[in-house]
């Protein structure tokens, strides 16, 4: 480093010039999260949802238990009973422990009828551990986070 460059602190001002260039408001990148919810990607793997048929409100789940078998944490429990008239398995309960879930998406991949799906909801906090274990009703309705008020 030459003496003049050293005396006039050229290297420091060079760095400060970068900082100065980045001061322009068009370089703002901060997300104002609770006030403005971010748009997550279409394929985002968030809260699980058990889809229902929108026409008659019946569940799409055929109680095949494949999601429970695919899950690495075995946090899905599916129970079913056989309908005597139609001789088909019908879903009775479906529990999903979101506190142990790592949102890997293997259950979603395993589902043959697209009943179980990981959705774009990402606000999953609750006040109790029990609140993290979702039952069938919760899975069908989805989480209802309290909206933030400024």
């Amino acid at each position: 480093m030459s003496l003049l460059k050293k005396v006039f602190l050229v290297d420091l001002f060079q760095g400060l010039w970068v900082t100065f260039r980045n001061q322009h408001p068009k370089h703002l990148v901060t997300e104002q999260y609770p006030a403005e919810r971010p748009m997550v990607a279409e394929r985002y793997r968030g809260a699980p949802r058990l889809n229902i048929n929108p026409e008659n409100g019946e569940t799409l789940c055929i109680a095949c238990n494949l999601c429970a078998l695919a899950c690495p944490e075995t946090l899905i429990v599916v129970t079913s009973e056989r309908n005597e008239q139609t001789k088909r398995k019908e879903l009775t309960t479906f529990t999903y422990d979101t506190s142990r879930c790592m949102f890997c998406g293997l259950c979603e991949d395993a589902c043959p009828v697209d009943a179980l799906e990981l959705t774009q909801d990402f606000e999953l906090a609750s006040y109790t551990r029990e609140g993290q274990i979702w039952d069938r009703q919760m899975l069908e309705e989805g989480p209802r986070p309290t909206p933030y008020k400024c």
Binding site: V40, R43, R45
Partner: peptide, 23 residues
């Protein structure tokens, strides 16, 4: 995130190839 739905712990690849087609 757009490709596989997760940002950090992605689980992007599967044994044998990919689970997701590019967006």
């Amino acid at each position: 995130e757009k490709y596989c739905g997760a940002r950090l712990t992605t689980h992007a690849f599967r044994v044998g190839g990919l689970q997701y087609e590019t967006y």
